[in-house]
Design a protein around this nucleic acid. Structure first.
Length: 563
DNA sequence: AAGTGATGTAACC
DNA sequence: TGGTTACCCTCACT
């Protein structure tokens, strides 16, 4: 991808005085500074040390925060030796990890539910085995259309909800398979053990996890982020991919050769104002039509057989805003969902497409990462938004003004991670189970882990949190197998396959993708003495090393018998 | 083993 | 309105 032009960071020269280093003597120490700390003094650069300021800190309310921020900009820069909260710059507390537990800044709204007055630790929506659910203010009023729809489908929907089978056991994986972070995953529609993966660099991975060692990376499919993958319906040896390089490519999986179906940047790089990126993509099954949408709010239709663009650009979201997702209804493919950075998800009819012609607009608190129709009936909608809420609309024929349920769930980090997307379990006949990775970590026996959550969207309950002490990174990309009880997850540059406990897989094996290192840091053996062993929460590194050493024993060479 | 940088969005002015 | 800047749990590199 061409490098984005970045303005040089220029300091307003007149408003900054020379740096002053101010040492603080013991006698001058503020009574509000952290006195409980057993560790020595730490330096903090850039903090204005001003006695008046310090004293106010303890009672500071959020309004004053802004004033102080303004003051700070104009006041001389000094270096203070006091401990300072990295979030609010106040003293008397510190946000950050204490061992494997993250302590929030108490002056900021809750990091999970975004409401003020408490922190993540005491949030009523804190992820436990039961999720917080915000009920809809009113039930969806049934329309007559809804009634008919329900009657037609009711016979197909089992009355008794099945017990969910959760693939919660790490089966195998490839460490550092990709050279950049994984951005999307897709199971091959007919070759059961084949997993396709796209990455930030534009590469395409193919892995047969049944044969474990059979894996390929095609390096030159796209020039940057692969955002979406879809199989050609007539020939599943062919894959369509959409990318931030502004192209849709059609790739032969056997040979790795590919060609453009659509190129929105034929002129090349002329700056970010004109460079088009393709995020959302789906296929209209009935018509063999490819739907893609760009970062300026426009939709394009491409005929997969004729290999030509047949429509677009059509403005479907706020002009200039990114469309991040598209999904065709599984029952009525002419209906499709779009979602984007303008905080909306929209329902459209492909037969009557023009700007402003959406059938419904679903409002969200922030950017909508994804919007999906339910996999069997296509009657429900599941969305993931950056406001840390997963929403469900129980019927597209009902009242769409507000969701049927909102579930508070931590997934709002987006600067350096692939956006999280809650996805339906395609095998769940009751259309209620969904998977999504979790951003916020949980202290799991002294190690900070980021589980993959299975949520029953009909009740809002957390059905399972899937994790493994070998995987300490976040798993923003998850995919459930269309037929098997298998979960694939993409975490950083690695891929993992999960199966239910007691599944057929005899061993857990983690292959190396490229580097000879396996979990790099683990190679460094914890050297001898572990100090502070009894101090559970405060000795992250040694505890982690111990755990990992235990976990890694013999695993990579010989495989590990499952317990 | 602290520092660094690649990055997207929203809140500023 | 556009351009600049701040940003809370990253991750993998030095």
């Amino acid at each position: 991808m061409p490098k984005l032009e970045r303005g040089k960071a220029s300091l307003p020269s007149s408003s900054f005085s020379p740096v002053v280093v101010q040492m603080e003597t013991d006698s001058e120490e503020s009574p509000f500074s952290s006195s409980s700390s057993s560790e020595g003094e730490e330096e903090e650069v850039g903090r204005v040390s001003d006695d008046e300021d310090e004293r106010n800190d303890e009672e500071a309310v959020e309004g004053e925060e802004e004033d102080r921020a303004k003051k700070r900009r104009k006041a001389p820069i000094t270096i203070s030796l006091k401990k300072v909260c990295k979030v609010c710059k106040g003293t008397g507390h510190e946000a950050g990890f204490r061992g494997a537990t993250y302590i929030d800044c108490p002056r900021k709204p809750c990091f999970l539910c975004k409401r003020p007055g408490h922190t993540t630790m005491s949030c009523p929506h804190r992820v436990a085995m039961e999720h917080g659910v915000i009920p809809a203010p009113r039930r969806n009023a049934d329309t007559s259309l809804d009634y008919i729809f329900k009657r037609q489908l009711k016979a197909k929907i089992p009355m008794i909800k099945p017990t969910f089978v959760i693939p919660d056991h790490l089966d195998c994986g490839i460490i550092r398979f990709h050279s950049r972070r994984v951005t999307c995953l897709e199971f091959h529609p007919t070759r059961t053990h084949v997993l396709l993966s796209g990455d930030k660099k534009g590469q395409l991975g193919i892995w047969d996890y049944g044969k474990l060692h059979e894996k390929t990376v095609y390096g030159s499919i796209h020039s940057c982020i692969v955002n979406n993958m879809k199989f050609n319906l007539e020939n599943d040896g062919v894959l369509y991919t959409s990318s931030s390089d502004g192209t849709v490519r059609c790739t032969d999986l056997e040979t790795g050769t590919s060609f453009f179906l659509l190129d929105l940047n034929p002129e090349g790089w002329n700056g970010p104002a004109t460079w088009r990126m393709l995020y959302g993509m789906d296929i209209n099954v009935e018509k063999g039509l490819l739907l893609v949408a760009d970062n300026f709010g426009y939709l394009y239709l491409v005929d997969g057989r004729l290999k030509t663009r047949i429509a677009g650009p059509i403005l479907i979201h706020k002009k200039g805003s990114k469309v991040v997702g598209l999904h065709c209804n599984p029952v009525q493919p002419d209906l499709f969902l779009s979602c984007g950075n303008d905080h909306f998800a929209r329902i459209w009819d492909a037969r009557r497409l023009e700007a402003e012609s959406s059938l419904a607009s679903l409002a969200h608190g922030r950017v909508v990462n994804s919007a999906y129709f339910s996999p069997l009936t296509g009657n429900k909608i599941l969305t993931t938004s950056q406001d840390n809420r997963i929403r469900v609309w129980d019927s597209i024929f009902g009242n769409l003004e507000s969701p049927s349920r909102e579930i508070v769930h931590s997934h709002d980090f987006n600067r350096h991670l692939t956006p999280f997307r809650a996805e339906w379990d395609p095998k769940d006949p009751s259309e209620s189970l969904a998977v999504i990775g979790r951003y916020i970590s949980e202290n799991y026996e002294g190690v900070a882990l980021h589980p993959i959550d299975f949520i029953d969207m009909s009740t809002g309950k957390l059905v399972a949190e899937v994790m493994n002490t070998d995987i300490t990174t976040i798993s923003p990309v998850t995919k459930l197998h269309p037929r098997d009880d298998v979960l694939a997850s993409g975490s950083s540059r690695s891929l993992f396959i999960w199966k239910p406990k007691g599944g057929k897989s005899p061993e857990q094996q983690l292959l190396e993708g490229k580097s000879k290192k396996i979990f790099g840091r683990v190679e460094k053996k914890s050297s001898g003495k572990l100090d502070g062993e009894s101090d559970d929460d405060f000795d992250f590194s040694s505890k982690e090393k111990k755990l990992r050493a235990k976990n890694l024993e013999g695993k990579y060479l010989s495989g590990q018998k499952k317990g």
